[in-house]
């Protein structure tokens, strides 16, 4: 990200090379969740496999720490390593994966996976979500996070489907209003569309 961050990272990496576990903990805390979601969502692997891949990469980071020469950033080393491992797994699974398509779609330059961004986003989102009325937020999260269909939410909460629809619309409208100041920030960490 910024050069300041990079310099800090390289310093911590030097500590890692000296065998300091706290340095390892730092990288793990910072990158592990993002890498897991990256492997899982981007390369469309189920969660346990994605975690195995990322954990292998971290074990290797520790075991080979003395041999590693990370000149640019630890971050790109980790993301590239995870990406390569994912491709290996995919290649073994189905021989005809259009690797190029995948590479183009999901560039590792996407920084929205980093721990730093995670914290920022969390605050922003929590603030946005707080502005939603309780019922409205409940419905929004059931839909977005548990992937329930409007009909299922209506049944679960004993509401009419129409009400659920209205609440969803309302949630989106409020969130958009609340987060509009942050949208340029979001745009900064350019994101791909899961939809396409």
């Amino acid at each position: 990200m910024e050069t300041g961050n990079q310099a800090k990272e390289l310093f911590i990496f030097e500590e890692l090379k000296r065998g300091k576990e706290y340095a390892f903990d730092f990288f793990f805390n910072y990158y592990y969740p993002g890498l897991c979601v990256y492997a899982q969502k981007i390369i469309e692997l189920p969660e346990p496999e994605a975690k195995d891949i990322v954990q292998d990469v971290f074990v290797k980071l520790w075991n080979d720490r003395k041999k590693l020469d990370v000149q640019i950033s630890v971050r790109s080393y980790l993301f590239v390593a995870v990406k390569n491992k994912c491709f290996d797994v995919l290649r073994k699974k189905k021989r005809s994966v259009k690797l190029q398509e995948i590479t183009h779609q999901h560039d590792i330059a996407d920084e929205s996976f980093d721990g730093y961004v995670l914290c920022e986003l969390e605050i922003i989102f929590d603030n946005g979500l707080k502005k939603l009325p309780d019922r409205c937020r409940e419905i929004f999260e059931l839909s977005r996070l548990q992937g329930l269909k409007n009909r299922e939410i209506a049944e679960k909460l004993n509401l009419s489907e129409k009400t659920v629809e209205n609440q969803m619309t309302k949630a989106l409208r409020i969130l958009k209003e609340e987060l509009k100041d942050y949208l340029p920030l979001l745009a900064l960490f350019e994101i791909f569309h899961f939809l396409r």
Partner: peptide, 24 residues
């Protein structure tokens, strides 16, 4: 912008669900 909000919200949720300490 809306799609971004929805995507980030979902991904954030996924990342938060991961038990970092246990996996570490």
């Amino acid at each position: 912008a809306l799609i971004k909000i929805l995507n980030y919200h979902q991904r954030l949720h996924q990342m938060k669900r991961i038990n970092i300490d246990r996996d570490l």
